[in-house]
Design a protein around this nucleic acid. Structure first.
Lengths: 348, 348
DNA sequence: AGAATAATGTGAAACGTTTAAAAAGGGTGA
DNA sequence: TCACCCTTTTTAAACGTTTCACATTATTCT
C-alpha cells in the first residue's frame, strides 16, 4: 500500500493539486463535474488528507494541549470531559500531558521549583508540537502565580487559582454561603466549620462565605466552632470528635470536603450520635462514595464539567481572537441527601 | 516576535541549516566549536524546533491516539495514567479522543452500528493526524470483534475483549478463582455468586473461575447460589436478599462488582445480619467507596495501571517493529478489608 | 458576434524540517 | 609539499499540503 497524497489524486483525476485542495476544503468554487471526478478518485483510493502537511502550510494545528497535574485525581476526568465536549464541537483535538505529580516518588509539593520544571517541560513539548493553546488543570487548588512561560500562546488555568492569568474557577465563597443558608433554612444556628488547609485559596474563600453568611443571618460567630483540617478522612474524624465534645456542641457542621465529612460521620456514630437527627453535616465535592455511605452525605457538587467547557471556551476565544472575555464563574450545586435535618433542639 | 526557524539560526550562527539540524538531533558529528556557536544562538533566540515540520519530513510523529469510550468512568483514568507512564518514557505523546458514550443522549448500547460510526470517525481523525498507533479503551467490558479499520496502523485494545486483535486484559478467570480460594481458606464452603450481565465476557470468565474453584476444592455446586445481576447497586441488593432468604443461605458471596456488593451490604443489614460475622462478601473493582463503607469491602483490585502500561508497551513494540509479542496478562489482587471472616458455623 | 466579466483551473512557491550526496577542510605520512 | 583519507560542512531536494497570481474557459450583456 503505497502512500497516496494529493498529487496522486490530482494525477488520476486529471486536475491540478490546487483543484483537489479546493474540493477538499471548499475553499473555492469548483465545477460540479470536476468536483465529482475528484471526489470519486478520493473515494476509490480511500484517501485521507495528511494533517501534518496541512498544518505546516496553514499554520493551524487545531490542537490544544491539556496539562493535568494528575489525571487519576477524582475531579480531573470530568473536567477533561468538559474540555473535550467543547473542543469536539469546534473540531479541536487534545494533546494530553499528565504530570503524574501524585505518583512521582519523593515529590515535594511545597517546593514550587520542583514541579516548575516538570510543568515548563510539558509546556515546551506541547509548544513544539505547535498546539494553539494550553489548558492547565491543577489538582489541589493552589496558587500558581503565572509561573509558566507559554511564549505568547494563550493558556487558561482551571481548578487552580492563577493570578494575572485567565483562570476558570467555581465560586467558592458563594458555595460556602449557600451551604450555610441551606442549614439556616433548616433551622440551624449553631453551625461549625471544618476547613481544609488554610494555605489553599479555596479554603480561605469558603471560610469567607461561611463568615459572611453568619453575619448576614445574624448568627453568633464562635471561635470554638472553627476547625482546620488537612483534607484527610482522619482529620475530619478527629476534628468532628472535638466539636462534639464541646459543652455546647454545634448542631451542624460544614465540612470542606467529603473525605473529612466521612470521617466526621464515623466520629459521630462512635459517640452514639445519629446523623442527621443529632448532627447535620454538609460536605463538599460530591464524591461517588458520598452517595453510598449511610446516611448519604448532603454535599456541594462541583461544576467540573462546566469548568472544562468554560475553560475550553475561554481558550478557544483567545485562539480565534474573539475578544469577548466571557469568563463566567460556574456555581456549585447542593446535592441533598440524608445527612441534614433540622436541629434536635428545634424538634423538641 | 517573528517566527524563527532553523534557517534563522543557521544564518546567525553562520552555518548551514543541515548543520543546525545535526547539532539539534545529534545525527552526525559536528565540531565542538561550531556546535557551541549554534547552541548559543539557539539559546539566545529561545528557539524551539517545529515538530510539525519535523514530522512531515521524517514521517514520525511520536504520537499515538488514545480512544476512550468515556474518560469519566472510574477505571479509565488509571489506565490512561499507565499508558502515559510508558509513553513518557519513550518520548511518545498522546492525542486523546473521548467518545463520551455514556453521555450521548439516546445512545443505544445494544446497537453496534450506532457507536461504530463514532469509533470509526475517531480513528479516521487520528489517522489524519498521523498517529503511529492507537489504543482503544472500552469501558464496560464487551466484545468488539475487530470492528475498526485502522488502515494498517497498529491498534491495541484494552479493557474490552477484542477477538483477533491485540487486546490487554487482566485474567478474569484467575481473579474469580483466587477470590474463591481465599474464601475457602477462611473456612467457607457455602459460597454463592452474584454475576454481572451474562452477555459480557468477563462475567462468563469469572463464572468459569468460580466453577473451576468449586470443583477443584470439591465444594457442592448449588444452582440456587447462582444469581445474575445487572451491575447496578439495586440488583445486588435484591439478589443478595434472595440469597439470604434461602432455607440454607450461603455463608459467603462473591459479587462481580463493588456496586452490587454495596447493595448486598445494605440487604444484609436490613435483614439484621452483620457482615462479616453472618455473611462474608468479596467484591470486584476496588472502587474508592469500598474503603469507606462499613464494613469496608474486601475486593479484587483491577490492575488498571498495569494494563495501561502493557497496552502502551504492546503498541510501542508494534510501532518499532520489535516483534517480541510480550502480551502479558496482569493479575487482579485481593484487597483485604472487613467484609470477610470465617463462616459463622465454623465459629460455633 | 464580440467584448466584458465572472467562474474555474493551473503552476509554482512556500511552510520548517531532514538527509542524501557532494564539497570542503584538516591531519597524516611519505 | 603533496596525495590521501577521514571528518566536518554545505547544497539542494524532498515531505504533502495551501494559496497567490495568473491563465483559461464559460457566461452574460449589448
Amino acid at each position: 500500500m503505497e502512500k497516496i497524497g494529493i498529487k496522486e489524486i490530482a494525477l488520476r483525476a486529471n486536475v491540478s493539486t490546487a483543484t483537489v485542495s479546493y474540493v477538499l476544503n471548499g475553499t473555492r468554487n469548483v465545477r460540479p463535474k470536476t468536483k465529482e471526478r475528484v471526489l470519486k478518485v478520493i473515494e476509490e483510493l480511500n484517501y485521507r488528507p495528511n494533517d501534518i502537511a496541512k498544518s505546516l502550510k496553514s499554520k493551524r494545528t487545531n490542537t490544544i494541549g491539556v496539562i493535568a497535574e494528575d489525571v487519576t485525581v477524582f475531579n480531573v476526568p470530568e473536567i477533561i470531559d468538559g474540555i473535550n465536549e467543547y473542543a469536539e464541537k469546534n473540531d479541536m483535538h487534545i494533546l494530553l500531558t499528565n504530570l503524574r505529580l501524585q505518583k512521582r516518588v519523593g515529590y515535594d509539593y511545597a517546593n514550587t521549583d520542583h514541579y516548575q520544571k516538570h510543568a515548563q517541560d510539558a509546556v515546551s513539548n506541547l509548544l513544539s508540537k505547535q498546539v494553539e493553546g494550553i489548558i492547565y488543570i491543577g489538582i489541589h487548588p493552589r496558587d500558581l502565580t503565572g509561573l509558566i512561560n507559554t511564549y505568547n500562546k494563550p493558556i487558561v488555568y482551571t481548578y487552580c487559582y492563577a493570578q494575572n492569568e485567565c483562570s476558570i474557577q467555581y465560586n467558592d465563597e458563594q458555595a460556602s454561603y449557600d451551604a450555610i443558608e441551606y442549614l439556616v433554612s433548616k433551622g440551624h444556628s449553631r453551625i461549625a466549620i471544618i476547613s481544609g488547609l488554610m494555605d489553599s485559596i479555596p479554603s480561605r474563600l469558603r471560610f469567607n462565605g461561611y463568615y459572611k453568611a453568619l453575619t448576614e443571618f445574624q448568627l453568633p460567630f464562635d471561635p470554638q466552632f472553627i476547625k482546620v483540617g488537612d483534607w484527610g478522612l482522619n482529620s475530619g474524624y478527629h476534628l468532628a470528635a472535638e466539636l462534639l465534645k464541646l459543652q455546647e456542641p454545634p448542631t451542624a457542621i460544614l465540612i470542606m470536603n467529603d473525605l473529612m465529612a466521612a470521617g466526621a460521620l464515623r466520629a459521630a456514630s462512635e459517640q452514639g450520635m445519629v446523623v442527621p437527627t443529632d448532627l447535620s453535616i454538609v460536605g463538599f465535592d460530591n464524591r461517588e462514595f458520598s452517595a453510598y455511605l449511610s446516611p448519604g452525605i448532603t454535599t456541594m457538587d462541583l461544576p467540573l464539567h462546566d469548568m472544562g467547557i468554560l475553560a475550553m471556551k475561554a481558550l478557544y476565544n483567545r485562539i480565534s481572537g474573539t475578544n469577548e472575555k466571557t469568563e463566567e464563574t460556574p456555581l456549585c450545586k447542593l446535592i441533598e441527601r440524608e445527612s441534614v435535618a433540622g436541629p434536635r433542639a428545634a424538634l423538641k
